[in-house]
Amino acid sequence: MTSHPLGRPAVLLPLTAFGVTLVAFVLVPTYSDATIGSFDVYNTLQIFARLGPLALALGLTMIAGEFDLSVVGTYALGGMLTVQLGQEHVAHGVLAAVGAGAAIGLAQGCLIAGLRLPSMPVTLATYIALLGLTSALSGGLTKTYANVDVILWVDQTVLTWFSPRSLITLALFALAALVLAATRWGRELRAIGGDRRASRVAGVAVGPLLVGTFVASGVIAGLGGSLLSLSLGSANPDPGVQPLILAAAAALLGGVSLAGGRGSAVGLLGGILAVALLAEIATVTALPAYVTQLFYAGLLGIIVVVDAPDLHSALVRLRADLGPGNARVPAHPARNPHV
């Protein structure tokens, strides 16, 4: 659209969101009694580690023009499998979570790509089924994880600001950034999100690419759930819808378009860091939760309205309607271009 890179929403949105929240974070001592220390940076990155995998998993499918609602289901299942199978060896639990994520992604990807199904109803059904499965595995109860060494390890402070958990999440983003920016896979992912028909004609293997994206989404979500339950020392069968909504907000703030074809891993990182900073600011300043919610509502509302394809023509039509002598041309059934 615009020639200058800063004018593009994929760059502008995450940059603005991250910039504004970072300034607000640094300036916290000027407008409240709270102070900011290295612990708050650590905490922000812990929130990032909690929601980052979900935002990345959802964001990848959104770039491909799909919408994977099931990420929260995979997230819950991954956490539960880790706790139940990883009591002896933590690796078994993490592998089970990642394997389950891959299997779920493979099944969904094959259905969606093979039958050309819309992803929203399929992943919604999977989301419901996975929450049920997780609840059935645990009898509806929160399960605790007894391996204290692991719990202490994942959240120990590394380099003042980080923990192994946030470093792993950052590594996931770095890997995604590398793949999206430097490989053919990344370019083709944006291509099938932008114009699937054209990319198919141009020789892109749309099916395998979609399956791969859903597998990646499942693996990332499963690993995210696994890391979360190791950090909490427990797994909750129902994470609620808040994580999904925050992840979607982060992806949109990260410059990913719901129409597909637009977005980058670095943008997603900016979006989720903005969400994490906002959550930490709210915690530090003891801001009521509803203020943050209204803030998100306003932000998303602006994004969606500015992004609306018919906004301009609607305004033009509205002006025309309000003007004098502008009766609508009545519909003519025979000319109905219904196909």
Binding site: F67, M120, I245, A248, A249, L252, L258, A259, P288, A289, Y290, V291, T292, Q293, L294, Y296, A297, G298, L299, L300, G301, I303, V304, V305, D307, A308, P309, D310, L311, A314, L318
Partner: peptide
């Protein structure tokens, strides 16, 4: 009228409704 994306719009609305109601 504007063909806005209903998913994002209704997510925004859900935040707004809960926010106002809690407030």
């Amino acid at each position: 009228f504007a063909a806005a994306n209903p998913v994002v719009l209704t997510i925004a609305a859900s935040f707004a409704i809960t926010g106002v109601a809690t407030g």
